[in-house]
Structures are given as C-alpha cells and as structure tokens.
Write a protein that binds this DNA or RNA. Structure first.
Lengths: 339, 339
DNA sequence: TTGTAGGCGTTATCAC
DNA sequence: GTGATAACGCCTACAA
C-alpha cells in the first residue's frame, strides 16, 4: 500500500528530460519553455508528486520554520499569541514548531537545543519564570539566529521585544477609577522584581499623583497574584479602619478571587468598592458583576512579534536588532467599576 | 558574527579520523572505542557542534515530526488537547508542527499538503466543520501516513479515532439530576445531525427510561447552542404551563446563557431549576452559582491520540488501524445542580 | 532552453 | 574499530 513517493527524477525519467530541468520547471524558472513546464506539471500531478521540503531545505540551508516557545499553550493569553503568530506566519509561508517550557528552565534549554538542531530560521519566545541566566538564549543570538521576545523579558538580551506599556495601561486603569469617583484606591501588586509588575505599580502611582490623590503605603498589597492571594489581600484590606472605595488589581485572577470574597462579606461591587483587573481573561466577562479590565492583546502581540521576526530573518543585513515594539492595550469597561 | 555551524566533518578533520566514525561515535554505536567517543564528544563541545537534523532526517527518510491540525488553537478544549499531545510527543522525542484550519476546508486541504511536503511522520486532526468530503485525508491514508482523528469524526475515514462516550456521559449527567430529586428534566439539544449531539440526546433518554421518568417531546429544545440559543430556549421553557425542575444542556455556553436569563427572571438556581452543562469550560467554575458539567478531558484525549499515533508510526506492520479509543469523562458536580 | 556535475550533512554498507 | 564510498532528494553554477 505504501508506494514510495515520486521525486523529480521520476518525473524526469518519464519525460525523458533531466531532473534539473524538472526542478527549474517546478520552481517556475523563467529559463524553461512553457511547454516543458506544462508537461512537468501534468506528470507531477499524474505521479502524485510532492516536493521533499527537507531535501530542499537542506540544500538551501534554511527550514522555513519558526520555533515558538511559550510557558503553557493552554493559557488563554499564550494561545491568543499563537493565533497571532500563525496569522502572519501562515501567510508568509512559514511553518510553526510550537513548544512549551512549562516555566521550567531545564526544559527551555532543551527546547532551544532541539530548535537549533532543527535549523529553525528564527525563534519567538516568552521566557520561563524560572529563567534567571539566559546564556542559552545568548548562544542563539551568537549563532545569528534571529529571536524576538514577547511578554516576559530579560535585560541581558539584545533581541527585539514586543511588549505592552504596563505603566501607561495602569495609569489608564487607575484614572478610570478616579474619573468614576474613587477617592481611595488600593493596589494589589505582583512581585516587584518582575518588570511588568513594577511597571503596573508605577502607572498607578503616576495616576494618583496627576489627579491629586495621596499615595498610601498601606493600600499597596504585594503577592504572587494567585487565587488565594486575591482572597488574602482582600481580607487584609478589610482589616483597615476604612475600606478603600476602589481596588486596582494587577491581574484578573486575583481580582476575581477578591471580588468573590468581598461579595461573600456583603460588600457590594461596584457600589461599595469598584474593581479593575488586568489581562482581560475570558472569565472576566462572565463574572457577576462583569469585571472591568485592561485588555492584553495577545493576538496583536503575536502578529507584531512575528512580523518583526520575519523581517529579521529576511533582512539579516539590516541592523534591526534591539527594537522594542509597544502594543497598545485598551481598557475594557464593564460593570465592576462603574457606579 | 554568524560563524557557520560545525559539522561532523569539522570534528573529523580536527581529530584526524573519518566522518563516519564521528557519526557512529555521536550516535553511541557499540562498535566504536570508548576513547574515541570521548575525544569526539569533547571536540563536539569545543566546536559547538549541533547535529543537523534535516540532513539526518533526509538520510533516514523520516522527520520525527507530528503534524497537528485543529480548528482553532485558542479554543480552550483544543489548547488542552495540544498540551496532552505535547506531553507525550515531547517525551518520545517528536516535534510538533501545529496548524489551525479555522474551520475552513480550503485551509485544511492546504495544510495537509504542507504537512505532506514536510514529510511529517503522522497527523493528528480534528476535522473542520466545513469538511464534507474527506478526499484529502484519504489521500494521506493511501500514502501510508498514519493519522488519528479526535473529537470531530467522519465515517469515510478508516483511521483510528479518540472520542468520549457522549451517550454514557449524558446518561450520567441526567442520572445525577434525577438522583438530586428532579422529576421533570428539559434538554437543550444541539443539531441532531452532528453525532455528538444525537449521542447526548440518547443518553438523556436512556436515563429517563431507566429511572422511570416520562420522555416529553416538548421538553426537548434543539438549537445550535450558541449564547443566544441558550437565552431563547430558556424563554421558550418559561412559556410552558409548568416550569421543569431541571435542565440538561448539551454545552456550557448555552447552559450559562440560560442560567443568566433565568436568574434575571427571578428564578432561583438550583432551588427552582437545577442545571447541568457539558464540556467544563473554564468559565463554568466562575459562574454564580458555579455550573455542574461533564468534563471533556482535552488533555487526556490529546495524550491518548498521540500514544496511538506514535504506535502506528513505530509499528507500521501492526494492523492497528481502525481503532476507536473511548476516553472516560466525569461529572464535575458544582452548585447549579445540588439543592 | 536544457544538460552536467557537484554538494548540502548525515548515515548505511561495504571493506579492511 | 575504523575508513571509504555512495546515497537520501533537491538545487544551482557552469557548460553546451
């Protein structure tokens, strides 16, 4: 049943011409007679010919493949990014090899090795949380393999990056709360050694300043922003002599957990406390009340990162490295913040 | 900066031995002296040697790559499936080329062609909704390329399949409602020409029968199970002289829409009407009350499909085709169904 | 416009 | 144990 695949040699033999002519005909070279092309095409169809891309790539020393490494494919943000990547890559004829690091540095290193061995033309990566040293990535850069980072960054890497402006986004979010009458805004912050979270804290501060609200240390609660953190931060808040009238939470997970807790304590949202989250997870729209949040446009980030990467791949001479593209994120206003 | 990669020839030259010996040493052949191996390994490291898998694959006529086609990467179910696929594939040393058909038949055909050209060792696919004729897939089968279908099926294909038992799952769901005191259970069904939905309807009927409830035509509302369908079906239900005391909905999307509508009409869930959905979308746990639903274990489906596929790839002689693996799905009991 | 020849990096099969 | 050689399928100077 498994008949072996036809090659250009088979076509050539049938047509009594040379394989090189077939090769040229198939790649539509201008230096081959139309009639020959027609004959070749016909025979190719007849024999069910499929080009062997591996052979072609070996010869041309490229793979037409982009390697993608994300912490987890099934996280909504990352799967949207992948859709964006696919959108551009498919159009430009690139294949995608997609891998997940599971946020483990060992696995990330291993994946880089595999991608290297597979001669990928470029790499798109959101580095793992465990990644402190980035030698394995510097190695990539040194081999001249273009790389674009998105979402998670590392300062030691010179590659291009695609990010959102966390500071500005948080400024917008906080401003929105103020414009809706908030006088005392708490902030649930993430680990401040992670750049995105320090950015978010900054934006919050700037908004307070600009609109004349006092920054109060006791209203800043720092955690890893998991479910349970949202709950404990909310409990913490309730111990204050005076409950703030708004909270800006640095991600949706913690925001939703906090919301649930506050509701269970009889606190009304948004009447007593207005809440804004960050990321626009799908669940944000389902909550009751629905959660106002900053959109983190994974699809656009993926598209932009891929455009950049393909640019680097196809113009290796351009000194395009070290670019930083900032994707705009917009506030999705829902019920949780509007009194 | 872009120094060209080292090859086994470079190692051989440095060591003044033959490339073939290097090749054998690197693949740890038993017929090469340990000392030589050590020398080779050392030199490989020194030169920063990375094997060129494309060349190796060309020679060995395989790609160590599995092609994956899903309608949309960002749909939660599919991204969980992909995680399952990755779990197994990574362990067995296979690469993944992941593509999305966007539920378009044209794109699906094109992707199959690309995968074929890339010499993938096998294909995992959930066929697009538009796919009526499956000639492009039959072509794959004829070329002897193993394929495993999951989720969405087509009767003309002989390949192995991985599915859940929709009938049994629905039986369990309905039984659960009955055991919790439901006497009159409505069913929001999907298009009954789609196999999964007719299966779900069947399971519902069987449970009614087994536990002595009457099947009533007017309690079956058929739709495409989108948001708006959930709403209109719920409204339909409210026109009945007597509201049923439970609903089994064939997916979570419609279940949640219906729940929201009923709540807005002052109907209490689960006290007045108990609800069970199907699929265990992430939002199901966030709803208030949280939604009881059948888990559709994408991760396990992906793992099993991949195991099967790799089995087929590595044992082409086994006549393993035509297998049908049924993955067990379990009921996730939450608040919406327990009075 | 077409054919010839050589090579991309690896490995299988000889022979020594 | 190791070396020589050919081949995987394709592409591309160069020659004709």
């Amino acid at each position: 049943m498994k008949k072996k695949k036809a090659t250009i040699h088979d076509i050539a033999r049938e047509l009594k011409i040379d394989p090189s002519t077939v090769s040229r005909a198939l790649s539509n070279s201008s230096r081959v007679k139309q009639k020959t092309k027609d004959l070749v095409d016909e025979m190719a169809k007849k024999l069910g010919y499929q080009p062997n891309i591996m052979a072609s790539n070996l010869r041309k020393n490229r793979s037409n493949t982009i390697g993608v490494i994300v912490p987890r494919i099934s996280r909504h943000f990352f799967s949207s990014v992948i859709e964006g990547i696919d959108e551009i890559a498919y159009g430009k004829g690139y294949n995608l090899v997609i891998c997940q690091s599971k946020d483990e540095i060992m696995r990330e290193k291993d994946l880089i090795k595999t991608l290297l061995a597979n001669q990928v033309d470029g790499v798109l990566i959101s580095i793992s949380m465990e990644t402190q040293s980035v030698e394995h990535l510097i190695q990539l850069e040194e081999k001249g393999i273009p790389m674009v980072l998105f979402d998670r960054m590392h300062d030691d890497l010179k590659s291009s990056k695609v990010v959102i402006d966390d500071c500005d986004a948080s400024f917008q979010a906080t401003k929105h709360l103020i414009k809706n009458g908030a006088k005392s805004i708490a902030h649930f912050a993430g680990p401040t050694d992670v750049s995105i979270y320090s950015g978010r804290l900054n934006g919050y501060r700037k908004a307070l300043e600009k609109y004349g609200l006092k920054f109060k240390e006791e209203l800043i609660l720092t955690s890893r922003l998991m479910d349970e953190d949202g709950i404990s931060c909310a409990l913490e808040l309730m111990k204050l002599p005076q409950l703030p009238d708004a909270i800006f939470v640095a991600n949706d997970i913690a925001a939703i957990a906090a919301m649930k807790l506050l509701k269970s304590k009889g606190i009304r949202i948004p009447e007593d406390v207005a809440i804004v989250g960050f990321s626009n997870e799908p669940i944000a729209s389902v909550m009751e009340p629905s959660l106002t949040t900053m959109d983190q446009p994974g699809f656009d980030i993926g598209k932009e990162a891929t455009r950049l990467l393909i640019d680097h791949i196809e113009n290796p001479d351009h000194k395009l490295n070290n670019q930083k593209v900032v994707i705009e994120s917009t506030l999705i206003v829902r019920e949780s913040s509007v009194k």
